[in-house]
């Protein structure tokens, strides 16, 4: 199979214990549960999604017609879909940027702390444990236009907050909630990366007269760039696929589709709008994007895990 495509040596993939068992039926029994679940709940539905993306169902669900790529053609001329696409990319970039840069700053400072470092870490990581939809609920409560605490303070500055009416504010709120939840993850990985830099390198920089900020930009930041790249991919995947709950709780895609990101649109068109072909075609496009991101992740990231 296409293992070469992942840039991994064949030898390593075929890795098997030198000493091994030679039973004929037992290994099949062992992989059976995983393979059965994979086939029934992953592979079969995915092929169904691909098949359905080539079909158009009439308005009453009585007949279906095989239309090849018509659903896709329609999507790529549909302004609502294209806007949603652009919006998703903007959303992901904003979430990744806000979340990663705040995590980088916090990790940079936490790396300097000797006493109390674990306490800081403990207090910064727990948003990881909070479900996206809950994160959404907390933020929507804080920003409730009539009751929320933050709109109350914003009012003092003459700023009128109502994310139910203002699309830009709705987007900002969804971005903040999504970025807030992801800071913990980024912080942990940045801190781990910084702590693995040998102290001697930093000390050498200090002896050469580089001040802390300069050392950060010329030594630390370049040395942790593999982590930055890894986190970029992970944050993109997160923003694309795992933020459904946030959008569903905070804005339900509104106002006027201002926060309808792709994942929300697949759900909405499929389960609410019952447009099976269109929703399936969107699923297939998302699937291609995940495959692409997974390949990037495995091909260019040379992670600790070697396959």
């Amino acid at each position: 199979m296409g293992c070469a495509g992942f840039g991994v040596a064949e030898k390593e993939i075929a890795m098997l214990k030198r000493v091994h068992f030679n039973k004929t039926w037992l290994p099949f029994m062992l992989v059976a549960p995983q393979i059965a679940i994979t086939l029934i709940f992953f592979i079969w539905p995915a092929t169904q999604a691909v098949y359905q993306s080539f079909l158009i169902e009439d308005a009453f669900g009585l007949s279906t017609e095989f239309v090849w790529f018509e659903n896709f053609q329609y999507l790529f001329t549909d302004e609502i879909y294209l806007n949603s696409f652009g919006r998703t990319i903007f959303f992901s970039a904003a979430v990744a940027f806000i979340s990663m840069s705040s995590a980088l700053v916090l990790a940079g400072f936490a790396d300097r702390v000797i006493r109390g470092a674990t306490t800081y870490r403990t207090l910064l990581i727990w948003p990881y444990a909070i479900a996206p939809v809950l994160a959404g609920a907390l933020w929507v409560f804080m920003f409730n236009p009539t009751l929320g605490i933050l709109p109350y303070f914003l009012d003092f500055f003459g700023y009128d907050w109502n994310h139910y009416l203002n699309g830009g504010q709705a987007m900002l709120l969804v971005i903040l909630a999504a970025a807030w939840k992801q800071i913990a993850y980024n912080f942990l990985f940045y801190l781990a990366a910084m702590q693995s830099i040998p102290r001697s390198i930093i000390e050498a920089g200090a002896i050469d007269g580089a001040r802390p900020i300069r050392r950060f930009w010329t030594l630390v930041f370049p040395l942790i760039s593999p982590t930055t790249f890894f986190l970029l991919v992970i944050n993109a995947v997160y923003a694309f696929f795992e933020t459904f709950g946030i959008v569903h709780a905070v804005t339900q895609g509104g106002p006027a589709n201002a926060t309808t990101i792709l994942v929300y649109k697949v759900y909405n068109d499929g389960f609410v709008g019952l447009d099976l072909g269109g929703s399936a075609a969107q699923s297939v496009i998302l699937m291609i994007m995940v495959i692409f991101m997974t390949i990037i992740q495995f091909r260019f990231l040379e992670r600790k895990v070697q396959y």
Binding site: M1, G2, C3, I13, A14, L16, P27, V31, Q34, I35, T38, L39, F41, F42, I43, W44, P45, A46, Q48, A49, Q52, F241, F244, V263, V266, Y267, G270, F271, L276, S279, A280, S283, V284, L286, M287, V290, I291, T294, Y307
Partner: peptide, 24 residues
């Protein structure tokens, strides 16, 4: 089919619920 099974398991990485919700 040892490696075939291995790749089949690998593919699940690329199929989060979100991209196959209706058929699943």
């Amino acid at each position: 089919f040892r490696m075939g099974f291995f790749w089949l398991i690998f593919i699940t990485l690329m199929l989060p619920v979100e991209v196959r919700i209706l058929p699943t």
